[in-house]
Design a protein around this nucleic acid. Structure first.
Length: 294
DNA sequence: TATAAGATCATCT
DNA sequence: GATGATCTTATAG
């Protein structure tokens, strides 16, 4: 590295390690230098590291693949502010094409917005950059699936603002329901593959962010593909054209530790009175729709 | 219906 | 070495 580069890197507090067998884990596939640690204000340096923000590509190629995904929503749908996208996603249909050709569909009924750099609950708070959260900085519509609690995944979609994304928290199963049940019937534990104690009801198949990932077979290896052109996942309009009128806005789930200001922001959205929502907020419901008594 | 505890490990500090 | 944008089961009311 030249003197100038060193100086720049030092100025940015940016630590770049060249890719070696030793320091790169299997989930990192970039040939470019890998950003290992970046100080809070250095997210801008992402743009100057070649290849770092490039999406993975695997577009539909057969005529059938092109045909079945021809109704996918375009880039312009995702290229809007996070909170708008989170609300607009309600009522849309998430379509998953498995490698064996099976199709799974679910209507999105619950989402959460993570606003990016300012949002204390966001993985990208203060411009933090790690190998895991890079998809949040990528073009709107990029898939971000992360692994959590030792055995679960959560599926997000990047939106317009730097580092922002929408978490998909719940779906209403529409198609491929028996397959979803199969995918959900085994515990996610790596070693103890026990069956669940009871048969899951339809509304229990995707009523939580990790349940969505289990049912739809979404894993972290799917991160960095785009909903705009990946052949295995996309979003469509609801063919029934049902208008989503009653949207509840309330605080997000499971982020109390970040402090009241951000924990309490109304960034969770769900379709009122929908059976597949993971957790209803009775207080928010009674305030926003007082005419419908709980 | 509500709450608590335990599972389990990649990721980050 | 600590933690977590969760889920399931058990228990209490």
């Amino acid at each position: 590295m030249s003197k100038t580069c060193n100086k720049t890197a030092k100025k940015l507090n940016l630590k770049i390690l060249m890719k070696t067998e030793k320091n790169v884990k299997s989930d990192l596939t970039l040939d470019a230098p890998v950003v290992r640690k970046v100080q809070s204000s250095d997210f801008d340096s992402l743009k100057t590291t070649p290849g770092l923000l490039e999406q993975l590509k695997d577009a539909p190629s057969t005529q059938w693949e092109i045909d079945i995904s021809s109704c996918r929503l375009p880039y312009s749908f995702y290229n809007v502010p996070c909170q708008i996208l989170a609300k607009n996603l309600l009522g849309k249909v998430l379509v998953r094409k498995l490698e064996n050709g099976a199709i799974l569909k679910g209507k999105i009924v619950e989402t959460e917005g993570y606003l990016g750099l300012e949002d204390k609950a966001s993985h990208t708070y203060q411009g933090k950059v790690t190998p895991r959260n890079i998809p949040m900085y990528m073009a709107p519509g990029t898939i971000y699936v992360y692994f959590t609690y030792g055995m679960y995944h959560c599926f997000n979609i990047s939106s317009q603002e730097e580092g922002s994304a929408v978490l998909i928290r719940a779906l209403e199963p529409l198609e491929g329901i028996e397959l979803m049940r199969d995918h959900r019937s085994c515990k996610p534990y790596a070693k103890v593959q026990k069956k669940l104690s009871k048969e899951l009801k339809e509304h229990e198949l995707c009523n939580g962010p990790s349940k969505v990932c289990m049912a739809m077979k979404l894993e972290k290896k799917h991160s960095k593909y785009s909903l705009c052109d990946w052949k295995e996942l996309w979003i469509e309009e609801d063919p029934t054209q049902e208008v989503v009128k009653k949207i509840i806005e309330c605080k997000r789930i499971g982020i109390d530790k970040v402090g009241q200001e951000w924990a309490d922001k109304p960034l969770r959205y769900y379709i009122y009175d929908h059976k597949c929502v993971s957790k209803k907020d009775k207080l928010a419901e009674s305030i926003q729709f007082p005419q419908y008594k709980n």
